[in-house]
Design a protein around this nucleic acid. Structure first.
Length: 112
DNA sequence: GACTTGACTAGAC
DNA sequence: AGTCTAGCCAAGT
């Protein structure tokens, strides 16, 4: 199991209308200092992974090679009902918290 | 197996 | 409030 596939598994659990941050994903996998590696994994994520639900620590869309990627991310989030304020998602409102999700059913974070 | 490249982040200034 | 810096580390070359 590569780090990337663990990232994909977790991101697939994020429900529509919610977002998570890179650092949050890393921490959830028991590796709080690998936010950057999460970004690296997302940069080449396979089909079926809702990559657009991953945003940076400020609730913004991180820069990438092609501008169109940023635009489609924003568009998809809007379609899912995520509102932007000054170009940023309000994390207090839309952040998905795996701990809470676990209480309602499946396990979200891997145990260290 | 060394070296480079990032969709990162927290903190300093 | 905007930039810079130093850690960080998986993958690709």
């Amino acid at each position: 199991m590569t780090f990337a596939s663990a990232v994909y598994r977790l991101v697939r659990r994020v429900p529509a209308g919610s977002v998570v941050t890179y650092g949050q994903v890393a921490a959830c996998l028991g590796a709080p200092r690998r936010a950057r590696a999460v970004g690296h994994a997302m940069s080449r994520c396979p089909v079926g992974v809702p990559w657009h639900r991953v945003v940076n620590a400020r609730g913004g869309i991180s820069a990438r090679a092609r501008m169109e990627g940023m635009l489609t991310q924003r568009m998809r989030l809007l379609e899912e009902g995520v509102r932007f304020r000054r170009g940023l998602v309000d994390l207090r409102t839309y952040r998905w918290e795996p701990a809470r999700a676990r209480r309602q059913g499946g396990r979200a974070c891997v145990s260290p």
